[in-house]
Nucleic acid binder design. Structure first.
Length: 276
DNA sequence: CGGCAAACCTGCGAGC
DNA sequence: TGCTCGCAGGTTTGCC
């Protein structure tokens, strides 16, 4: 499920019910997800008031008023589901339950347990090992073609592989890497180093546009629910290439069909004529 | 630094 | 119907 647009969708859903609310209870129903939960997490956060919920890259930041921050990541299969019933029975893979005032609960469900929940004290968030290396937010004004070109310069890997590197630009995953390269007309196999000038401008723009459109659609749903309400995202219907092997190239009348191949052990989809 | 495989897990669809 | 296999939105680690 979760690349930048899906995490943004989840954060917006969480913000609606968590911003400014007191965290009444934190229930940890196992000792770990991908990593052990921080020692004393429950005692540290219970009773504290939440400031805001926001996103950085694919990370969910639940910021407490006292400056501490819970850092959530959904991995491959994580969901955050909002409920209104504090006594709702625990479902399979409901590993963490946040209870806020007004009887609202948020269940962190993650079958594969690649997600995690960590904590950073006030002032330590920026230095968190998983945040400190992150590249720029692609939807920020600071992310431009020139910035992208500078970060790609000297990289000998393929451009697709570089887009998946969170140190170069944050939040892009396997679906939106293929989609952005398609709209920019750049072959996923091009050397990253080779993407500069107007090509980098076009790619930065394509990234912004595809992510913005995906957020507007509530993200993409492959097989899991995305939104905190349980509603599916709808952007999968707007994918140009991802999962569309054998279908006609949708963006022009080039007459080619979308091809799939394995690149760095991940599926890549592209149009062999439109993308060069 | 780069590339690649493996690791962490469960679920699901395809194919037999 | 039921089994096995391959694959899945992410990220880190370790090896060459």
């Amino acid at each position: 499920m979760p690349e930048l647009p899906e995490v943004e969708t989840v954060c917006r859903g969480l913000a609606r019910v968590m911003d400014g609310k007191r965290l009444v209870r934190l229930d940890l129903h196992r000792p770990d997800l991908r990593f052990p939960f921080p020692k004393g997490l429950r005692e540290r956060v219970e009773g504290r008031r939440i400031g805001i919920v926001e996103r950085r890259a694919k990370y969910i930041l639940i910021r407490l008023e006292d400056g501490g921050t819970m850092i959530g990541h959904l991995g491959m299969s994580g969901r955050m589901m909002i409920g209104r019933d504090t006594n709702e029975p625990l479902g399979a893979h409901d590993h963490v339950v946040f209870a806020v005032e007004d009887g609202v609960t948020v269940r962190f469900n993650d079958p594969r347990r690649f997600g995690f929940l960590d904590f950073a004290e006030a002032g330590a968030l920026g230095a968190h090992p998983m945040l400190v290396t992150l590249g720029p937010e692609p939807l920020s004004d600071a992310f431009t073609g020139a910035v992208l070109a500078r970060r790609l310069a000297g990289r000998k890997s393929s451009i697709k592989s570089a887009l998946l590197d969170q140190k170069i630009v944050a939040g892009i995953g396997n679906i939106y890497a293929s989609e952005a390269l398609y709209w920019a007309g750049i072959s996923p196999q091009r050397s990253a180093d080779d993407v500069s000038g107007t090509h980098a401008e076009g790619l930065a723009l394509a990234i912004k546009q595809v992510l913005t459109r995906a957020i507007a659609a509530g993200g993409s749903s492959l097989r899991d629910f995305v939104q905190t309400s349980g509603e599916l995202g709808y952007f999968q219907h707007e994918w140009a290439v991802y999962g569309r092997e054998g279908e006609p190239c949708p963006g022009c009348d080039c007459g080619k069909t979308i091809e799939k191949f394995v690149q760095n052990a991940r599926a890549t989809f592209h149009c062999p004529r439109r993308q060069t």
